[in-house]
Design a protein around this nucleic acid. Structure first.
Lengths: 363, 363
DNA sequence: ATTGTATCCGTAAACGTTTACGGGTACAAT
DNA sequence: ATTGTACCCGTAAACGTTTACGGATACAAT
């Protein structure tokens, strides 16, 4: 049935030329309203969908966008992708997925980017945490290939549009929360220091302490790796110290890390939050269900995805020659001309059980 | 630099026609070895990559395959996708991703499938756990559109190639393991009974019990929903009973469910594995790091992905008219002619701490 | 010399769109 | 009657490939 309808078939059915059909499909002017209506109906009836491929060939690029993700296992990815997919769907673009196999990260990433460019398959690229390979992206940019970045870099290469979160303030808030709860010996388990995100969070931690007049105790900071295992290892190191040297609270660099802290507390016979207060960072879906429920800093992943993809799509539209042909009136233009190219979204503190706040106020 | 090379440019550079270039690019016969060599070198030097779009238009479909995934949050997805992506990459296909927003599952899924067909963008579809919408897939099949299914259905619709795991035997093994450890009051927390996977696992559980001469106690089976929350709720119901009515072991329908059981034990002051032995199903990456480390049934997700994508690609090749033109000799043919269309992969029991086996044998 | 065969390669049509261009109509203004 | 002006719409070229077809060459067989 829906075998291989082409624009020709629709044209024949509507007694018009393919030119006209194309015009109605693309909302171009110069077509009689009644004709437009009629063609639209036929298209609907026949379930005709234009060939992305052919259209792509004609205009030079497809209604496809590349999304480059790090390991699919990163907890942020699903939420991010979901919001991206929704928008992309509505605009009848499609997503082509490039994921990095963790092993040969760098090399892979470069190759993928080259292919994205050479193949001319997609109209733009959304790169999620490309890490070092962010450098490759300026290559794309140079070839006027639309790119946007979701990343932790405050200073992404050159003029590449960028969406991220305010890691510094998040960490600052988390630490302040612990401070407010009366803690003075607060430890932190950092992410890998090679990542900007880790350094930002650490800085927020330090500044909150400083502001409270508490000197930073180097004994109370350990470098983890954002994973469960790293968190557990570091926490265990803290927890095995004599009581006086032990922290009373820990700020974990990520929720995964915090899960490790919970496990370590378990094996050391320490109770959270009574013996140790804990706050994480990310607000993964599972964090609400942890035992105890994890107090953490929520990152607005879903909004990040939306903003990023909007940025990308508008950049794609802009790069098409047809874009300024029909600005309805002067008013409209203002909306479009200059969107922010760097978006940093705020985090929010979500208080659950692991910090002991509820318990405290219940007293 | 790599601006917009076309096959024309390569042809000019090589003093040949575009036909010849195309032939070498596609490993077609009828080209002089030395010419082939020369063209290949030029292609390499110039970094030329043919336009997928144009090639797709010419042959009727692209080197793209659709992958339809349920929520990206399902723990199996990352591992599956990774293995799929690797193979697809090597063969210079690309993945276009369709994910279902959990809300309007059914409707969405149908629409997506229609679009996949009508748009003729991709050469085939890998559908992961499409659920009810598996029915839509026969539509595709009818239009001779290659499809393969990764699913829990033992009887997938009609002749659709299918890859799955042996849920029944897995559950049977898990239960036998508990039995071997001496348990007699074994509870189970099922998945949603509307899923075949849940019913299969339950059946395996029942049969193992039966075989051991233990009558099934309906008080010891509860229906969860494969999530942490469901697991916790059900487990709590078990654990609040008086000792005599309490199970000594629980077989959780999924690892997520098992995580819930661990949490419930925690709040009820029960120790795993001393008070309660626990085994899960799936072997999610996190399960090894749980406290205690989770004994579980490992599903070979990565192999499932590989097998499925191979099935799909061979089905795509087969549907192209050119496929039998050049079978080197009679030998070769045998490899290809008839691959199994239904593949059910075995699970394996991985023993860690939550079942108490190590402890037991250590005595 | 003719015919045949094998090997290599060029030509042009086809794939399904988009879009610049120009042609036709209808109506108003002169 | 002529010219002008909108408004619609059809035509055909272009996008970058693949591939069926046939042409050219070289060499062998007759």
């Amino acid at each position: 049935m829906a075998k291989k309808l082409t624009i020709q078939d629709i044209a024949r059915l509507g007694n018009v030329s393919i030119g006209t059909v194309s015009r109605v499909l693309n909302n171009k002017p110069d077509v009689d309203p009644s004709t437009r209506e009629r063609i639209l109906r036929i298209v609907e009836e026949q379930g005709y969908v234009p060939s992305i491929t052919a259209a792509g060939l004609a205009v030079g690029h497809n209604r496809l966008i590349s999304v480059l993700v790090p390991a699919l296992t990163w907890p942020m990815i699903p939420e991010l992708m979901r919001s991206v997919a929704e928008i992309v769907d509505d605009l009848s673009y499609e997503i082509v997925l490039y994921s990095i196999s963790s092993s040969n990260h760098e090399r892979d990433c470069g190759k993928i980017i080259d292919r994205i460019l050479a193949t001319k398959l997609t109209a733009g690229l959304l790169a999620i945490h490309p890490g070092q390979s962010a450098q490759h992206l300026v290559e794309l940019q140079k070839h006027r290939f639309p790119v946007v970045l979701i990343d932790d870099q405050n200073a992404p290469p050159d003029g590449i549009p960028w969406v991220g979160t305010d890691n510094y303030s998040g960490a600052y808030e988390a630490t302040r929360h612990l401070l407010r709860l009366g803690h003075r010996r607060i430890a932190t388990i950092q992410g890998p220091m090679k990542f900007k995100v880790s350094r930002d969070r650490y800085q927020g931690f330090c500044d909150a302490l400083l502001e409270a007049g508490i000197p930073l105790d180097p004994e109370l900071v350990l470098e983890g790796d954002f994973t469960f295992g790293g968190g557990k290892r570091c926490a265990q190191e803290f927890f095995e110290r004599p009581l006086a040297e032990r922290p009373t609270a820990v700020f974990a660099g990520s929720d995964q890390t915090a899960y490790g802290v919970i496990a370590a507390a378990e094996v050391c016979g320490l109770h959270i939050p009574d013996d140790i207060a804990l706050v994480g960072f990310d607000d993964n879906p599972s964090s609400a269900h942890m035992q105890p429920a994890l107090t953490t800093i929520r990152q607005p992943f879903s909004e990040m995805g939306q903003r990023a993809i909007r940025l990308l799509l508008s950049s794609i539209e802009r790069s098409r020659p047809a874009h300024q042909k029909r600005i309805e009136n002067g008013q409209q233009a203002h909306d479009v001309i200059e969107e922010a190219q760097r978006i940093q979204l705020p985090t929010t503190l979500v208080i659950r059980d692991s910090c002991g706040a509820s318990r405290k106020y219940a007293l």
